[in-house]
């Protein structure tokens, strides 16, 4: 695992679940980036608080899995990290979320800029109704890349990183809807990678796919974590165990109270020796 000493130290030293914001990252920002620090994060839809008191670190260039029963706010928490919740009216985010030490909810931050650094892959493949090429070129073009050869290079690289290049290199003009579901999802990954993000958020990216496509996506994720920080929401325990380095377990114990973070830690430990009884019952399948 490629992880700078600074972060490794911060991640390993801080007690999981009650992490302090890690100021040391600021100093190291030039070498490594794409690490989140969440301090007392809460989310409210109107008057109803749905998530409260989340403290955790998201280490750079590693895979962090968010697990928990459906309706526990995993996706909502994920969407806080690129401020996609801003697009739904009536959502308030409390606490502090920093990306490499930068408070992403402060006034001067434009969420549009943030999203160029923090990409997202959605639950269902959602390619744009246009050619493969134009799909992947969308992000770079948004950033102002106009030169054809420059675009070509970015697109080739992104498609290679998403393990789709060999299958489509001769069909870049093809309409995205002609691809299979698994190919479409890898296209969406390539599309997100083409903006050169530091973090990639994945919201159950394989839940709509067949086992073979799921396998391909998981392989892709394993390759990608050398380049970007990945936060993945999944309801699939085996998947979390297979692909993630760190796992966070969220739970909403009743509809009257908000969801909270039960436990966060190294995946291997979480799945073999969890601290919390509820984590154990969830992982071993007693509820969910």
């Amino acid at each position: 695992m490629v992880m700078s000493a600074v972060v490794e130290e911060a991640v390993m030293d801080a007690p999981y679940g009650v992490a302090e914001p890690v100021r040391t990252i600021e100093h190291a920002a030039e070498e490594i980036n794409g690490s989140f620090s969440l301090t007392d994060v809460s989310v409210a839809y109107g008057a109803e608080t749905v998530i409260a008191g989340v403290n955790m670190l998201v280490p750079t260039r590693a895979v962090t899995a968010l697990i928990g029963p459906s309706g526990c706010g995993k996706s909502t928490l994920l969407r806080c990290l690129n401020r996609m919740n801003d697009e739904i009216g009536n959502v308030r985010v409390g606490g502090t979320i920093t990306l490499d030490g930068l408070d992403i909810y402060q006034k001067s931050i434009d969420p549009v800029d943030l999203r160029m650094r923090v990409g997202q892959v959605f639950q269902r493949p959602n390619p744009f109704p246009m050619s493969l090429y134009d799909n992947v070129a969308f992000g770079p073009r948004t950033q102002g890349v106009r030169k054809r050869d420059e675009l070509d290079a970015i697109i080739e690289e992104a498609l290679k990183d998403a393990a789709l290049w060999d299958e489509v290199k001769n069909h870049l003009k093809k309409h995205a809807f002609e691809l299979s579901g698994g190919q479409q999802q890898r296209l969406c990954i390539a599309r997100a990678l083409a903006t050169k993000p530091e973090v990639l958020l994945m919201d159950e990216p394989a839940s709509a796919l067949d086992p073979i496509s799921t396998q391909q996506i998981e392989d892709t994720i394993a390759e990608l974590k050398n380049m970007v920080t990945i936060v993945i929401v999944t309801h699939n325990m085996q998947q979390a165990a297979r692909i993630s380095d760190q796992t966070a377990f969220m739970l909403r114990e009743s509809m009257d109270q908000p969801a909270h973070l039960v436990e966060v830690g190294e995946t291997k430990r979480m799945f073999t020796n969890p601290d919390d009884r509820r984590t154990e019952s969830y992982i071993t399948g007693r509820f969910g």
Binding site: Q106, S108, I109, D113, M116, Q143
Partner: peptide, 11 residues
């Protein structure tokens, strides 16, 4: 001090 452009230095 953070300006909006700092968020995406390359733009």
């Amino acid at each position: 001090k953070v300006t909006p452009t700092d968020m995406a230095g390359r733009h």
